[in-house]
Design a protein around this nucleic acid. Structure first.
Length: 429
RNA sequence: GGAGAAGUACCCAAGUGGUGAAGGGGCUCCCCUGCUAAGGGAGUAGGUCGGGAAACCGGCGCAAGGGUUCAAAUCCCUUCUUCUCCGCCA
């Protein structure tokens, strides 16, 4: 949600900022300004009538007590009451309309974010080097199957397309990654949260997934109940709602959270055939970091989150690239996003393992999350999130980048303590 | 899933149709005393929306949303949450 005052005062600035996303919402902005004007006028009119009604309501008991006849006043008030009801209905229609329009606007990209779509993303730097193999390298699907780490056919049997089963050393490595990430974050002073996976509509609204992207999540509803929940597509959705409708005090900021959850995504319309194995599934594991900060601290927090995500990939020894996303590639709630993309040798491309974003006050405004600053003034907090990390993209990178000529995979050193000390996973005979 | 009870501010809590939503604790300030405690007084309904340069004025607010009424914390309906009991269950 954007600040209506900003739109009133500087509509051209808002329009131009949204153009950077390659979206033209000028007509929506104009409509908002129009509705806002009408709404304010209608508000004034209704409130004047209500003030009149309130004043009369105080007089009526006085008249009655004095033994007077109130019937004339009552008759007048009845008419007024009907007028108010009518005007109120029109007003709430305007309120609702404005709310809907406002909710449909994406966040404004930061000044320094590159305009344009995906192709305008800026590779900022790379870390490490592409591994060179003096043998024919295999892809992660072949490796994971031959090493008994992943069972794709049985995954499909159980959960259909886009599902897989971790087993043996695959399950051990997945669990090791999650433990490794969580321990690193705990050492950095983050609080571990295990949230519910089924969330109510409000959560998706605040995070910015709804109303626009409600098709992209899985909905859960029993035939006998009107109660509807959705499976979280990322733990961010839960974490940014933790303090919904709360006023935090300045000295408890920043709040630093991590959560482990599976992420459930429909991935409708994505090209599964080009993305074999665990690159894109309907359920994948992720450790997510979220910070609530004062506005003036959010840039620093963003750097911290990016740095933490990079450190994890570095400790795993994986070659990666950091990309600064162009405005059009940042998701709707975010003012800026950096992606950490890890090298997948078999695909010859970099794939996202972490996405770090600053939502600034966009989510806080949707969720009414404030804090009281040093001058006792209420302000919206800033919310930020970053994956730290998405394991189902990390494991393919590990097995492919760490593969050996004999089909075995060397286990990254940092994971060995979490995997019973094993250093190499060998093909099963 | 069934039955019952409840939801008022930072906390406890009164208030069953009518002028400003009691009271207490806590917190802030002042006085007295004097450095611990006790006593006296004052303030303490947040927030949001509209108007205004501002002072300020006004609307909304008793879990949420509807309804009845000139008027709702109060009466009716729906929903949510919490507690107690029962049932079912990994």
């Amino acid at each position: 949600m954007l600040d209506i005052k900003l739109i009133r005062e500087n509509p051209d600035y808002v329009k131009a900022a949204i153009h950077k996303r390659e979206m033209d919402l000028d007509h929506v902005i104009d409509e908002i300004l129009d509705v806002d004007q009408k709404r304010r006028e209608a508000t004034g009119a209704v409130e004047a009538k209500k003030a009149q009604q309130n004043a009369a309501s105080k007089e009526i008991p006085k008249i009655k007590k004095a033994g007077g006849d109130a019937s004339e006043v009552l008759a007048r008030m009845k008419t007024l009451s009907e007028e108010i009801k009518e005007a109120d209905a029109a007003l709430s229609e305007l309120n609702e309309k404005q709310q809907t329009l406002m909710a449909s606007l994406p966040n404004l990209p930061d000044e320094d974010v590159q305009p344009g779509g995906k192709e305008q993303n800026i590779p900022d730097h790379v870390w490490g080097e592409k591994p060179q193999f003096d043998f024919e390298p295999k892809d992660h699907v072949t490796l994971c199957e031959s090493l008994g780490m992943i069972d794709y056919p049985r995954g499909a049997k159980l959960g259909g397309n886009g599902a897989w089963v971790y087993r043996g050393w695959g399950a051990r490595m997945e669990w090791a990654l999650l433990n490794f990430f969580i321990n690193e974050h705990l050492n950095d002073g983050y609080e571990l949260i295990l949230p519910p996976h089924m969330l109510n509509y409000e959560c998706g609204y605040v995070a910015g997934q709804f109303p626009k992207f409600s098709d992209e999540v899985y909905w859960i509803q029993n035939p006998t109940s009107s109660d509807r929940k959705f499976l979280l597509p990322t733990a961010e959705t839960a974490l940014v709602n933790l303090h919904r409708d709360e006023i935090l005090s300045a000295d408890e900021l920043p709040k630093k959270y991590i959560a482990y959850t599976p992420c459930y995504r429909r991935e409708a319309g994505s090209y599964r055939s080009e993305e074999r194995g665990m690159i894109r599934g309907h359920q994948f594991n992720k450790v997510e970091m979220v910070q609530y900060t004062k506005p003036e601290d959010s840039d620093r927090a963003f750097q911290e989150l990016v740095g933490k995500a990079e450190r994890l990939v570095q400790e795993l020894g994986l070659h990666y690239r950091l990309s600064r996303l162009a405005a059009g590639d940042c998701s709707a709630s975010m003012a800026r996003t950096y992606d950490i993309e890890v090298w997948i040798p078999s695909m010859g491309i970099y794939k996202e393992v972490s996405s770090a974003s600053n939502a600034r006050a966009y989510q806080a405004r949707r969720g009414n999350i404030k804090y009281r600053d040093e001058n006792r003034k209420l302000q919206f907090v800033h919310t930020l999130n970053a994956s730290g990390l998405a394991t189902s993209r990390v494991m393919p990178a590990i097995v492919e980048q760490y593969q050996n000529a004999d089909g075995s995979v060397t286990v990254p050193e940092v994971l060995r303590p979490y995997m019973g000390g094993v250093d190499v996973i060998r093909p099963q005979k």
